[in-house]
Simulated scan of single mutants.
Amino acid sequence: MRFGSSVVLLATAGVAVAQSVNISSLLQYADALLSANCTSTLESLVSNSTLATCLHVTDLAPILTSNSSIIPYTDKWLADVCYTAPCTNATLTQAATTIISGCAADLTKYNITNATIYDVVGQYPLAREVACLKTTKPFNATNVTAPATPYNTTNGTFCATSILTELQSYLGANLSLPYIATAALGGNATVVQLIEKIPTKALCSDCIFAAVDLIEEQYPGLGNISLGAINGTNTTLNQFLTGTCNATYSITKNGTLPSTITESAVNSTFPFNVTAGNVTYHPSNTSSAIPARNSSIAKRDVDITAAKRRWFGRV
């Protein structure tokens, strides 16, 4: 098993959605897939809504028009998302109901249930908690050009910034949106070959293990997912990580993060305890309700009322 697919998933999933160098062509393609009403609904959500404000969507706009690295823009966006108030449950609920209403025909067409929309939107507390992880041991490389605007390094460097910088170093090129889109489409054989050569040991970082800790605190069954036979032995995700990294870090599943990790999510709505260093953060009264922590992450209640209740409290 190579590290290439894992890096792409962890470092570029958020931007690889732009599956074309030509952004206008991408939007035209999206219009062809979605109804006019759904397109208008989504455009409104990301440009002129309370959700767009708390997600600081405007910070990401320069990525669409620049050929430079996405890392400085991403770092600025993370600082704004993490150091300001999070999206409220009311905002998330409204966003979900807006999508369900404005894209009803499209959801039916693509066999997506309303409960699924609530579940996806309801991942926000976990996603923000992971995105706001910072490390005091960021990746540094001499072949990476220093950004014009220095990264935010208060109480550490954002893990996402560190991981993207490491990926950029392996590729030897700026992670611009056109570059990422070309790589995602397989349009540059050299890029694909470079990704495939990234060593599996690159997974052995405090950031990766901290993210896995938080995700498995909410979804304990994730670590038991089988990756198939590796070196002749059936191996789970956690076995692969701990074996590859020779117990450099451990996966706690209880929110106890590596000592080099700090948590910067202001007024966190993540509904579990998180221990970073000598500080344990407890869920606040605004933390979203979540599903029971079953052993299987695939187990889901498809009842719409239950879905709304488990993510957003009483309905």
Score class of each variant (00 low, 15 high):
189 A>N: 13
92 L>P: 02
10 L>E: 12
83 Y>C: 05
286 T>G: 06
28 Q>G: 09
4 G>D: 15
293 R>N: 14
250 S>T: 15
97 T>F: 02
3 F>I: 12
263 E>Q: 14
5 S>W: 07
225 I>W: 03
241 L>Q: 11
48 N>W: 07
237 L>S: 11
22 N>P: 00
178 P>N: 00
63 I>F: 02
116 T>M: 04
283 P>Q: 05
40 S>V: 02
265 A>V: 08
161 T>C: 12
98 T>L: 01
1 M>L: 10
121 V>K: 03
134 K>E: 09
289 A>L: 08
92 L>C: 01
143 N>C: 11
300 R>C: 02
17 V>R: 14
86 P>V: 03
49 S>W: 12
299 K>I: 14
94 Q>S: 15
68 S>T: 07
259 S>G: 01
290 I>P: 08
207 C>W: 02
80 D>I: 01
278 N>I: 04
117 I>W: 00
41 T>Y: 04
103 C>F: 05
53 T>I: 02
86 P>L: 02
206 D>P: 04
163 I>M: 13
188 N>Q: 14
280 T>V: 06
113 T>D: 04
153 T>I: 13
138 P>T: 09
230 I>K: 10
176 S>M: 03
192 V>F: 01
297 I>E: 13
263 E>H: 13
215 I>K: 09
168 Q>G: 08
218 Q>A: 14
297 I>G: 10
157 T>S: 11
66 S>C: 03
283 P>Y: 03
124 Y>M: 12
238 N>W: 14
286 T>L: 14
306 A>Q: 14
267 N>D: 10
302 V>P: 01
28 Q>H: 04
290 I>F: 07
142 T>N: 09
232 G>N: 02
54 C>H: 10
283 P>S: 05
25 S>A: 03
228 G>T: 08
13 A>P: 02
296 S>T: 12
191 V>I: 13
